[in-house]
Simulated assay, not measured.
Amino acid sequence: MTVQIPVVRRGRARRPGDSTPLSALLTTVIALGAVVMLAPFAWLIVAATHNTSEIFSTPPALLPGSRFWTNLTGLFTNLELGAAFKNSMIVSLVYTVFGIVVCSTAGYAFAKFRFRGRDAMFTVIVASLALPGQVTLVPLFQIMVQLGWLNSYQALILPNLALPFGIFLMRQTMQSVPDELIQAARVDGAGEFRTFFQIVLPTMRPALAALAIFLFLGQWNDFVYPLIVQRTPDAYTLPVALATLHGVQATDYGQLLTGTLVSALPVLVLFLFLQRYFVAGLLAGSVKQ
């Protein structure tokens, strides 16, 4: 009597790099989403090279034209583009640097120090995130008038240095810094400032990069508040200066879109330099040690 042993055939083990229908579907969806997100920016680049009639022609122009330098020259002629770009760059850079210092020191205090009213103060800061910025426009304008700060850089920089979101992000991130590391620095004789700037901050580069992007982007694109406190064209920031291109009867959309493209370039360059830190910075405080 012969006993036959069934042979079990095993398929090839799936490797990590092998594609599955689900992964292929997700890749397709992500690619389509990227195309949808990049399409307006691509159209902005194309439209900046045409004049108004070509932009609104039927069918629309889908290829770059030859009007970019004409539009760019017209911007310098019709408005003080150089001064507006300088104002926006100075305000955004100074605000970003000092905003990082203020938000990180406040987050360090809320995360690593115990004092009376700490939790109540932090609750108020978090609750202020739900407060619309338009609510504070009139009080801020009155304060700027009383201080004589209209048409000045400090009117744009100082009021929002203690950004509630920045303090919240820094506090959540600094909670992941081991207390033993800070205690060891104190035992070695390091003061609080040295401990903060030489021990704590170097471990938080991803979070600082993410905060820098938020601060710079928010200040660079701010329109309503600079429109209120900057009263003369030589003090306008870039968004306010570009808004003056809207005429009552006609608007040169070629120049307007060229200016919009110019205003988007610094933010794009900043993000490209800091993108590897951006996601890591947002997730830095998600795991508490």
Rank of each mutant, 00 (worst) to 15 (best):
I90Y: 04
V36N: 02
T73L: 12
A241P: 00
F98S: 05
F110M: 02
G107N: 10
V124C: 11
G285Y: 07
L163R: 11
V102N: 08
W149L: 15
G133V: 09
T260I: 05
P64V: 01
Y277D: 08
P202E: 05
S57P: 02
L147W: 11
A243Y: 15
G11Y: 13
G74L: 00
Q249V: 11
G65F: 04
A235V: 06
K86P: 01
A207L: 03
Q154C: 05
Q146A: 15
G74A: 00
V46E: 04
R205H: 03
A120M: 15
A109K: 05
Q172F: 03
S286F: 10
A13F: 12
I30T: 15
Q146P: 11
A109W: 08
S176M: 05
V267I: 14
Q134M: 14
P40C: 02
A155S: 11
V145H: 15
I90M: 07
I55M: 04
A31C: 08
L272P: 04
I228F: 00
A155L: 02
V7N: 10
L242G: 01
A111S: 12
A184R: 01
L257C: 02
F168R: 04
V224E: 00
P266N: 10
F110Q: 01
R12C: 07
V101Q: 05
V267M: 15
L75C: 03
V36G: 03
S23N: 08
N71P: 04
S92D: 06
A207Y: 00
S88V: 01
T27V: 00
V97R: 04
L265P: 13
D179E: 12
R9S: 13
L181A: 10
Q134K: 05
V3M: 14
P266L: 01
A83Q: 11
I5W: 04
H50C: 04
V200F: 02
L211G: 05
L257I: 15
V200S: 05
Y236S: 03
D222I: 01
P64L: 07
W220L: 02
G117M: 09
L26V: 09
T173C: 06
Q146E: 15
R15Y: 13
K288N: 07
T77H: 14
R14V: 12
I167T: 03
P266R: 03
T70K: 09
A241M: 08
N71G: 03
R171E: 14
T237F: 12
Q183Y: 00
L158I: 13
S286P: 05
T195E: 15
A212R: 07
G218M: 08
A34R: 03
L283Y: 14
F165E: 06
A185I: 09
E80I: 10
F216I: 08
L211F: 02
P233V: 07
